[in-house]
């Protein structure tokens, strides 16, 4: 069990590093898929079954496929990304490392005592569904409005400006049905 956790953690960390370090966007997306699948494995180990399923469906099934689709649509593999100067890259790595150390130091104490008993049924679909629809019904409904706004915003942003490309070009020939 503990070794399974270490294996999944190693996969997560290595694939996350590949996401950041890879030169090709396709490789980054594939590495991110591997990272998210290993995180779904962590959820299953923690017995969060509902979240594991939703995670696989939403992230690897929808979001990353959307990213892959955008890469292929925009032909981004032919773009050569300019690298930042060496000082900026060094400072980025140092910033990440310092953040990691600060977070570790901040939570070194005060985790509290481990409880004697754990409720293994917390992450089941039945429990999450009951809590979601009993205590969090209004946020759940509001999130549908958020999705509607995101959908409308994405369509408005990605629409081609100037010409209305939904209109067919005006034909010079008279309509045959009218004749």
């Amino acid at each position: 069990m503990l070794y399974l956790f270490y294996l999944l953690a190693a996969i997560s960390i290595v694939s996350a590093v590949v996401v950041v370090a890879s030169r090709s966007p396709i490789t980054s997306v594939i590495a991110l898929v591997v990272c998210f699948l290993s995180i779904a494995g962590h959820y299953i180990l923690l017995n969060a079954q509902f979240l594991a399923m939703v995670h696989v469906i939403v992230y690897t099934g929808a979001i990353l496929i959307l990213m892959l689709f955008v890469i292929m649509l925009l032909n981004m593999n032919t773009l050569v990304e300019q690298r930042k100067p060496l000082a900026a890259r060094l400072m980025a790595v140092v910033t990440g490392g310092m953040l990691f150390l600060v977070l570790l130091a901040a939570t070194r104490q005060g985790l509290g005592q481990a409880p004697e008993t754990y409720d293994a049924g917390i992450g089941l679909v039945r429990t999450i569904g009951t809590v979601l629809f009993r205590d969090y019904l209004v946020p759940f409904e509001v999130s549908s409005v958020l999705f509607l706004a995101a959908m409308a915003g994405a369509m408005m942003l990605a629409k081609k400006e100037g010409t209305d490309n939904l209109n067919l070009p005006p034909s010079s020939e008279p309509d045959e049905r009218a004749a």
Partner: peptide, 8 residues
């Protein structure tokens, strides 16, 4: 993972 994300 969070630090890797920030650095990236």
């Amino acid at each position: 993972l969070f630090s890797i994300g920030v650095a990236g």
